[in-house]
């Protein structure tokens, strides 16, 4: 736990934890609103977005790709809504039609374009490259106060931290209207809250978190962190504030435990290489959810006749 840790593991763990929290915060509301699969849909349609951005700019640059991904996410939300209304189709099926088609389009574009020379492929989009986000300029814990070394931090760290701040601000500022419109939309509307616009804003913020997290950690973590920590937190408490708190704890725990298990776990079994950190973080969050589903104090919820 010395200099090696700071160079190789500190920044990936930080980025993973920040991304996990950024996704888990809006995830709480999505799970309560039964829109949990929005995260799934968004993380699929991000692929065509970044491929189109790559085809337009011709380079693997971060900003255009994030913009492309964000545009694709908005297009997908609009398309889902259009298919649902124009075709009078239930939301689940409308979502299934749109995100599979857009993902297929992304894969096709990727295969058709000449991306063999650059680091852009489907596997990368799915697993992310958390392990490669190392802090080469660091020489030890002392580097944390060294401005020269700090300048060499991976840019993903700054971006994901900024995203987390934005997401946390949104959640904090709109806490009351969000909570009201989530639990009783009719009542919220009678108070003059514009529930439609608020719902759309929540989806946009989720898309923002998904895109930024996707840039750093790949889409598996995004889907898992949108759903697993909030779902597990929901089984722990009846109060929204406490639920959000639990979900943040679970998200950070998944990120740290997952990364450590992926990096050092195989060594304990005598295997040489490490395994996918993104996959392991998702797995740990699933284990936490499973534990909550079996032992969580509020797993059954209030007694209602259903």
């Amino acid at each position: 736990m010395g200099a090696d840790f700071v160079t190789l593991s500190l920044t990936p763990i930080l980025i993973g934890a920040l991304a996990a929290v950024a996704c888990a915060l809006p995830g709480n509301f999505l799970v309560l609103r039964r829109q949990a699969l929005i995260g799934d849909a968004i993380s699929h349609v991000v692929l065509p977005g970044i491929v189109v951005a790559f085809l337009i700019t011709g380079a693997v640059a971060t900003l255009p790709m994030i913009l492309g991904a964000a545009c694709a996410a908005l297009v997908a939300v609009a398309l889902i809504e259009a298919v649902r209304r124009l075709g009078r189709i239930e939301p689940g099926a409308a979502m299934g039609v749109v995100f599979t088609a857009m993902f297929a389009g992304g894969v096709l574009l990727l295969e058709q374009s000449d991306t063999s020379s650059v680091h852009l492929d489907v596997e990368h989009a799915l697993y992310g490259n958390l392990e490669s986000l190392i802090w080469l300029d660091a020489s030890g814990w002392g580097s944390l106060t060294d401005p020269v070394a700090l300048a060499g931090l991976p840019p993903e760290l700054g971006r994901i931290a900024l995203t987390l701040v934005a997401v946390a601000l949104f959640t904090g500022i709109f806490w009351r209207p969000l909570a009201l419109s989530t639990f009783d939309e009719g009542f919220a509307r009678s108070l003059g809250i514009r529930t439609g616009a608020l719902g759309l804003a929540l989806v946009v913020v989720s898309a923002l978190a998904a895109v930024a997290a996707f840039d750093a950690v790949g889409s598996i973590i995004v889907i898992a962190m949108f759903i697993c920590p909030p779902a597990a937190a929901r089984l722990m408490t009846d109060r929204l504030g406490a639920q959000v708190g639990w979900s943040v704890v679970f998200a950070i725990l998944s990120a740290i435990l997952g990364y450590v298990l992926a990096g050092y776990g195989p060594g304990w079994f005598g295997l040489g290489a490490s395994v996918s950190a993104a996959g392991m973080i998702a797995t740990v969050s699933g284990v936490i959810l499973a534990l909550a589903a079996v032992f969580g104090p509020r797993r059954r919820g209030a007694i209602v006749a259903t």
């Binding site: 829109q35 598996i220 889907i223 759903i227 395994v275 996959g279 699933g286």
Partner: peptide, 27 residues
Amino acid sequence: RTRLAEDAAIGAVLSVFFGFGIVLLTV
């Protein structure tokens, strides 16, 4: 058996199983 809605259950299962599958692929 829990209070979670079907969409949350679907999302949790698909992401966790898929993540675990990726871990196995890297193994």
